[in-house]
Design a protein around this nucleic acid. Structure first.
Lengths: 343, 343
DNA sequence: TTGAAAGCGCTAACAA
DNA sequence: TTGTTAGCGCTTTCAA
């Protein structure tokens, strides 16, 4: 047997108590004009006394306008995702919108369509999709026409309004920082890209090319810091590597761990830079040089864009910001001379 | 001007195409009995062809039963919160429920009532509140009678159904582990407690008492790892401290950072244990000894409890699990002799 | 087994 | 400025 929520007072109860009609109550609730201050006050008091809460379902049905937005993401536990969602929620709540979270497990057709159905069933006023990974990209494609929608990611797309953290330029700046330190080149550990290549990888390559440095093959990590550790072990075997730029801080931490386990010192033997400025980056040992991504602000910007789209404002389609480079302890001058290969 | 979501087909359209009445369509959608297989098939096909999606708002209004649950939390960015929410979302989605997130900024009366209003306005089928902190505790008190509700936390409460990770016993085991290593006593760095005292602190004290060890004053950290670092500096001044049990892994990492900055080595000079088994705990330097909290499973259990409550099943009110101790590199035998005070 | 009729609690026209 | 009248898209009686 299924039990519904406790039934509360309806608008009709409020109207009766205040001695007005139902639409008048509706008007004061929606801050509409044409209500005398006196009635407005009576209604407010009745609402207070009855502890009346309007039914979101009835409002949505009658007005054909939902007051909830849906966030679709491929993951919600990683720091960047969680922080972005936090920013969205904060802005939405301040604006009177509720937010639902729907995670999309993979980019497989069945997962995509199941998720899309779940989201469309909510009939949200708008949708934010976190396009940081392939599931996000797939979800965006599937959902684009079902409601006003905005994407959040690290590279500019042109299809839908988008809030971005300009990772291409940030990666370029970070790589340049390493080059200026005297490293002959900079190696790169990629995190799984959302498409063929991320802005981080593109920016890294651009900086190398601009400096006329050799462009080495990349190491590919998963999202698990553990994979960074294994890559650290591999890097330790290669005496040519003196500087490494990692796709995110967690992987950088893993790489440093792997390097350390092989007896190497960061940054004396190898410089390692991360990306994101994870809350633990500053207390890491050594403190991580990284690019600071303000994900919470990113989420707020995404909500702003979505709000515009919901209101039919076609002009606000784009919001970008460049993450600043934060130099800490994990990067330093290139070693005076090459290490000799271990093992 | 505000634009609603794209209008789709209604149940009436489906009924017309299938050549049946609206209630019949409703019956097949809700898997009700008394529909001939033949009509059922026709309706299914019409739904398919029209790409029909039922309106959640209309269903909720007509049936007085929402298919969304609300999650209320004081934070969503910290690992434990994000992972718990992930578990709740996963279970809810599998069960056909949508989930909204509402964060409660503080335990202040105004924040509490504003959040409560936001949640009640959604008229959720049920609520899960993350009672890890004072805002969560306050939200629970305010919301308890508005819908079926379950709490998630580290200590048992008796008011509402609750999913818990038994941190008291885990903390006790972790402290005992340190004692067995030969440390005369174990110092404790607290994270902000949800009430007067957390299970972690109580468990630590109980273990000390059981062993007849001295119970030293606690150090109080904030949620910021940086505060752990400062405490690390203070601990470094005190040569009596040889073992520290921290309220969570992030703080433990900060403490280790602070200790290291003062020239101390972990675990040779001081053993440090954390709590949670954060994804980065294993790649930390040194790898953290901790208690593994399976937050995702915790979230799933919370959803299970809520589902029972929504169905009117009063019996399932309680689910507990004890986090196992994970011994890694950050704890070791007590130093043979006392360090001499620094500075 | 099926359909007709009556709402769910609200907002949107419209008339007064 | 206000109230009356119609629905919004579905579920729920109830009769057939």
């Amino acid at each position: 047997m299924t039990v519904g929520p406790t039934r509360g007072p309806t608008m009709a109860d409020v109207a009766r108590l205040a001695g007005v009609s139902v639409p008048t109550v509706s008007r004061v609730i929606n801050d509409a004009d044409h209500v005398t201050p006196e009635k407005r006050a009576r209604v407010r008091e009745a609402i207070e006394r009855l502890r009346y809460r309007p039914s979101a379902a009835a409002r949505t049905l009658a007005s054909r306008q939902s007051r909830t937005i849906a966030v679709v993401a491929g993951d919600t536990m990683q720091y960047g995702y969680a922080a972005t969602i936090r920013g969205i929620e904060e802005a939405a709540r301040a604006d009177g919108f509720a937010v639902t979270i729907t995670v999309i497990d993979s980019a497989d057709a069945s997962d995509v369509s199941r998720t899309a159905a779940a989201v469309q069933g909510q009939a949200p006023a708008g949708i934010v999709v976190l396009k940081f990974d392939p599931p996000g990209v797939a979800a965006l494609a599937e959902l684009r026409d079902s409601a006003p929608i905005v994407a959040v990611s690290g590279v500019r797309g042109r299809d839908v309004p988008q809030a971005v953290l300009d990772e291409l330029h940030a990666a370029q700046a970070l790589t340049a920082h390493l080059l200026e330190l005297g490293h002959a080149t900079v190696h790169h550990v990629r995190v799984p890209p959302s498409r063929k290549e991320d802005g981080r990888t593109t920016g890294w390559r651009a900086a190398l090319r601009a400096a006329g440095a050799e462009i080495p093959a990349t190491y590919d990590a998963s999202w698990d810091p553990e994979s960074g550790r294994e890559i650290g072990h591999r890097i330790a075997e290669d005496a040519h590597v003196t500087a490494v730029f990692c796709g995110n801080d967690e992987i950088a931490m893993g790489v440093i761990k792997g390097l350390t386990e092989r007896g190497l010192t960061v940054p004396d033997d190898v410089s390692v830079a991360g990306f994101d400025d994870h809350p633990l980056a500053a207390v890491w040992n050594p403190a991580l040089t990284t690019a600071r991504q303000d994900f919470v602000a990113l989420g707020r910007r995404a909500y702003g864009l979505l709000r515009s789209a919901i209101s039919g404002d076609e002009s606000a389609r784009w919001s970008s910001e460049r993450p600043p480079v934060i130099v800490r302890e994990s990067t330093g001058p290139a070693p005076g001379k090459r290490r000799t290969p271990l093992s």
